[in-house]
Simulated assay, not measured.
Amino acid sequence: MDIFVLGPMEILAAGVPITPTARKPRQLLSLLLFHIGQKVSNEKLIRGVWDDDPPQTAHATLQTYIVQLRRRLKNPVGSESATAKDILTTVDDGYMFVLPDGRFDLMEYRRLSRQGSAALKNGDLTQASQLLHDALSCWRGEALSNVRLSGLLQSEVQRLSESRVRTIEYCIDADLRLGGHREVLEDLSRLCAENPLYENLQLEYMVALYRSGLRVEAMNVFHQVRSEMVEHLGLEPSAALRRLNESILRADDSLDHVFPETYLGVDPQILGSVSAEKGVSL
């Protein structure tokens, strides 16, 4: 079975599409897949489908949706040993989705991202870059783009989007260390335009511009970020951005070989942590 949620939801069993078409079963399955291999309580599933306004028949209707999902899984599961109830199993007061043989893009993304981050922390830059690029290639667009998101699902998707941005940061950091400053310029330009208040990306963009011989453009980025922050947040840029801008003004020789986290003053493993209030766009 092949499951895809990093983009439009799509479920394939032995090559046969079995993705639910009805809205609420699709929401129910999405929540189960986000917690694959873990029990999701009936109460949480009901919240994930009806938010804070469930009908009086919510528990009975939930069981009906589970039966419908199992019916879709019943025939083309692709494994004689795996039945629909083995895959979508009842656990105490909830349900759990157990992945049979196959591919699940979210699990693959998390594994590659975790391995890539560890390689970056250990200084294995080539391996880190490869793993992190592979992790990002798992994405085919906005997660669950063909699912109407309840409040609970929206929170899950938001956390996943923030994880994706952190992975992008680690990937760009690895590429900058490997001398790929010109190669990352296009992606950084787009990401920084979409996230003008996301300071870590702006910092990496300034470093990449400077190393590409675009010193004036790097300083312009700082002034644009400062203008946005003062106007929208009433704040000055962080000390990290100010230090980097001062180094660019001096044409500091160290800029040719230091890494972005030198200015941030943090371990690269936590590079990219920002408050959700700033907003992240991909």
Rank of each mutant, 00 (worst) to 15 (best):
T90S: 15
D92T: 11
Q158V: 08
K121C: 05
D101S: 09
L106K: 03
I87V: 15
M107C: 09
A118P: 01
S117T: 07
E142N: 08
Q154F: 10
S137F: 14
A128D: 00
D86Y: 12
N75F: 12
L112I: 05
E80Q: 13
C138T: 13
A82F: 15
T90Y: 09
V98W: 08
T90L: 15
D105I: 08
R103L: 11
P100R: 14
A143Q: 03
S137T: 13
G123F: 04
A84M: 06
N75I: 15
R111T: 07
L131A: 06
E142Y: 07
A82H: 15
M107H: 10
V91Q: 10
L132I: 05
V147W: 02
N122M: 02
M107W: 11
G102P: 07
C138F: 06
L152F: 08
L136F: 11
G94E: 14
Q127G: 04
Q154C: 09
T83S: 15
G151F: 14
L160N: 12
L136Q: 07
D93V: 01
Q154R: 12
Q158L: 13
A128N: 01
D101V: 05
F97M: 06
D93A: 06
M96N: 03
A135W: 06
V147P: 07
F97V: 03
A119W: 00
G94A: 14
Q115A: 06
Q127N: 03
Y109V: 02
R72K: 09
A82D: 13
S79E: 15
T83L: 12
D92A: 14
V77H: 13
K85P: 05
L125G: 00
D134C: 02
G102D: 10
W139R: 01
T90P: 15
S150K: 04
S145A: 13
V98L: 13
L160R: 08
L88Q: 09
V157I: 12
Q115V: 01
S113D: 04
K121N: 01
R110A: 04
R159I: 04
R159T: 10
H133M: 08
Q115S: 05
G116F: 01
L152K: 01
D124P: 00
F104R: 02
R71Y: 14
L99V: 03
L99T: 07
A84Q: 06
T90G: 13
R72S: 07
L160I: 02
N75Y: 14
D124L: 05
D134W: 06
R110D: 09
T83V: 03
W139A: 05
Q130D: 03
D92G: 11
Q127H: 02
P76Q: 08
Y95P: 02
E108T: 10
S129F: 01
L149W: 04
L131H: 03
D93E: 10
V77L: 11
D92L: 13
P100M: 14
R71W: 14
L149F: 08
D101M: 07
S145M: 12
A118D: 05
L120I: 00
L160S: 03
L132S: 01
D124H: 04
S161C: 12
S117F: 04
L99K: 13
